[in-house]
Computed example of a mutant assay.
Amino acid sequence: MLTAVVIINLLISGVCFYIAAKVWKIRRTIARLEIRIAGMERRSSNVLSKSPDFLGKRQQGTRQLRRRYQQLELQLQQVQQLLGLLGFGRMLWSRRDRRLR
């Protein structure tokens, strides 16, 4: 009977030791993940803290490009109108030349 009790206690302690080893391994893994997450949080915080200035500059640049594009579109319309007038004048001039011949 004593032998059975000792064997059962050894089996229980073996199972408890196995569980304790697994828990210890999981704790180490969690600690490593915590260190990685803290590092990622630090890096992302550094990047995001600079974002408002970066985005503000890019928005200003975009606004300037849009204004410049609008100016160029206006100039393009004016040139197209001028070319249309020149084409119309050329057509009238060629008709005038035909009548004179």
Score class of each variant (00 low, 15 high):
E73Y: 00
I8H: 10
G61L: 03
L11F: 04
G56V: 07
R90E: 09
R90G: 12
L76I: 05
Q60N: 15
V5P: 00
L48D: 12
G14M: 02
F54H: 14
P52A: 01
L92Q: 09
I35T: 13
A20R: 07
I35Q: 13
E41P: 02
R68T: 15
E73S: 04
E34R: 04
E41F: 08
S44H: 10
L74S: 10
S94G: 00
D97T: 06
I26S: 12
Q81N: 09
Q75V: 00
K57N: 14
K50T: 07
Y18F: 14
K22D: 03
T3M: 05
W24Q: 15
R36M: 05
L85G: 02
Q75E: 06
R43S: 11
L86E: 02
F88C: 04
A4Q: 09
L74Y: 10
R36P: 01
S51D: 13
K22N: 01
C16K: 14
R99C: 10
G14C: 03
R42Y: 13
K50P: 04
V23D: 06
L2R: 08
R99I: 11
S94K: 09
R42S: 13
L83K: 04
R68E: 13
R32M: 07
N9W: 08
I37H: 04
L48M: 08
A38F: 02
Q78H: 02
I30T: 03
R36D: 12
Q81C: 02
I35G: 08
R98A: 08
R68D: 09
R28A: 06
E41H: 12
L11N: 05
T62F: 14
E34Y: 01
K25S: 07
Q60S: 15
S94A: 05
L55F: 06
L86C: 02
V23Y: 07
Q75A: 01
L10D: 13
R66C: 10
T3K: 10
K57L: 13
R98Q: 05
L100W: 01
W93F: 11
E41N: 10
V15I: 05
I35P: 03
W24I: 10
K57I: 09
S45K: 14
P52M: 00
Q78R: 01
Q59Y: 11
G39E: 11
L65N: 08
L92K: 10
W24Y: 12
K25E: 05
L76W: 03
V79I: 05
Y18R: 07
I7R: 12
I7M: 09
V47H: 01
G56C: 09
A4D: 10
R99K: 09
L55G: 00
L82W: 00
M40G: 11
N9R: 11
M1K: 02
E41C: 07
D97Y: 09
I8L: 13
E41K: 15
M1V: 03
I8G: 06
F88L: 05
R42F: 12
R67P: 02
M40C: 06
R28P: 00
N46H: 15
A4V: 13
Q80K: 01
R99N: 07
L86H: 00
R27K: 13
R43C: 04
R58T: 13
G39S: 09
A38H: 02
L2Y: 07
G56K: 08
